[in-house]
Amino acid sequence: MSDDNSQEVSSTEWGFITMTGQEEDLIYRMYRLVGDRWDLIAGRIPGSNADEIERFWIMKHSQVFAEKINQVKNSE
Rank of each mutant, 00 (worst) to 15 (best):
L33S: 09
L33C: 02
G47V: 02
A66F: 03
W57K: 03
M30V: 04
G47M: 02
F56I: 02
M59L: 09
R32T: 03
H61C: 06
K73S: 05
N74W: 06
K68F: 12
D36G: 02
Q71H: 06
E8H: 12
W57M: 11
T12I: 10
G35Q: 06
D39T: 08
F65T: 00
H61S: 06
R32Y: 06
G43Q: 00
M19K: 15
K60E: 05
E8Q: 13
E52T: 12
K60N: 09
S10C: 08
A50G: 02
D25L: 13
E54Y: 09
Q22C: 08
W38M: 04
S2F: 13
F65R: 01
F65S: 03
E24D: 12
S11I: 10
G43N: 05
S48H: 05
K60C: 05
E13G: 06
M1E: 06
D25I: 07
E52D: 01
V34A: 07
I41C: 12
G35I: 01
R44Y: 02
M30F: 04
W57Y: 14
Q71D: 11
E24G: 08
D36E: 05
F16V: 10
R29E: 15
S48A: 02
E54G: 07
Y31L: 08
I17K: 07
D4K: 12
S2L: 14
G21R: 15
S11A: 12
R29D: 15
R55H: 04
P46G: 03
G21E: 13
S75P: 14
I41F: 11
R37V: 15
Q63F: 10
M1L: 11
S11F: 10
R29A: 11
S10M: 06
Y28M: 15
N74Q: 11
T20D: 02
D3N: 14
Y31F: 11
H61W: 11
T20M: 08
F56T: 00
E67W: 07
Y31R: 10
S75A: 14
E23F: 03
W14I: 04
S75M: 13
R37T: 14
I45S: 02
D4Q: 12
I69N: 04
S11P: 13
S48M: 06
S10I: 07
I27G: 01
N49V: 00
Q7S: 04
L26C: 11
E76L: 14
L40M: 12
N5V: 04
L40R: 00
H61I: 04
M59V: 09
N5D: 05
W57V: 01
E52Y: 08
E8R: 14
I69L: 09
E24Y: 07
E67S: 11
G15L: 07
K68C: 14
E52L: 13
K68M: 14
R37M: 12
M19D: 00
G35V: 00
S2I: 11
T12R: 07
W57S: 06
D39H: 10
V9A: 03
E8K: 13
V9R: 15
W57L: 03
S11T: 10
P46D: 04
M59T: 05
E67M: 13
